[in-house]
Amino acid sequence: MPTVEFTALLVLATAMSFSPGPNTTLSTALAANHGLRHSMRFVLAVPVGWSALLLLCAGGVGALVVAVPALRWAIKAAGIGYLLWLAFKLSGNRRLAEADARRMQVGFWQGAALQFVNIKAWLLALTIVAGWVIGREDSLQRLAVVLPVMAVFALSSNLLYAATGALLRHWLAHGSRLLWFNRAMALVLVLTAAWMVTA
């Protein structure tokens, strides 16, 4: 892959991976409410699920999703519903003890599955496959470069957001800070769901 194309891939990966979205919001919220250790299952699930999504798009499933509007709407509806449910669960936690008692169960497999109903993940996967992989003579070699790069970015961004959430944990333990933090994170999830309606 030429240096110019690889640089463009890194710029896109940075912009998309480190901008707020469902994955980074959940990584932050899980670590802030339950600690970094609890959030690691989700953090590790994101690159695994996203890599599987990228492989499916490279294999032609992405073209099917684009070609069949009903399928795209089904994915969006599932994603919107799941994000709104997570926002509801998150918004009620007022104290760390309460958060621990009502632990949000977003484990490894749920984190991996979330990628398949995350329209931002689909758009990124389709963009990368169309721009860097499909229609090239060396498509398999390109996929072998793109896949680990994107997995590293997915892991790095979610780990950074989770570490930030974990660092805020003790500060959030005072007064109603956790409640307002959780409501802000829930609002980000709701806004993401609203964006998905129009995307």
Rank of each mutant, 00 (worst) to 15 (best):
M104F: 02
P20H: 03
P69L: 11
Q105A: 12
A101R: 14
V43K: 04
L56F: 12
A113V: 12
A52H: 03
F116R: 10
F116Q: 11
L71M: 15
S27G: 09
Q110A: 13
G59K: 09
S51V: 15
S51T: 13
A67C: 01
R94Y: 07
V65C: 08
G92M: 04
M104T: 14
G60E: 08
L56E: 05
V61T: 04
K89V: 11
G81C: 05
L84Q: 08
Q110I: 14
G92A: 05
W109S: 11
A74L: 13
A15I: 06
A101V: 07
V11K: 04
L86R: 05
D100P: 06
G60S: 10
V66K: 15
H38F: 14
L71V: 14
D100A: 14
R37E: 07
R41H: 13
S91P: 03
S39P: 08
P20W: 02
I80D: 00
A45Q: 10
V43D: 05
G79I: 15
G62I: 00
R94Q: 13
T28R: 01
D100T: 09
T25N: 06
I80S: 00
A15S: 08
K89P: 02
Q110S: 12
R103I: 14
R41T: 09
T28Y: 01
A15G: 08
A78M: 14
H38S: 15
S19H: 02
F108S: 09
H34C: 01
P20Y: 02
H34D: 01
W73G: 03
P20V: 01
L55C: 13
G111C: 08
T28D: 03
P22R: 02
L64S: 07
S51F: 06
F116L: 12
G107K: 11
W73M: 15
A15V: 07
R103N: 10
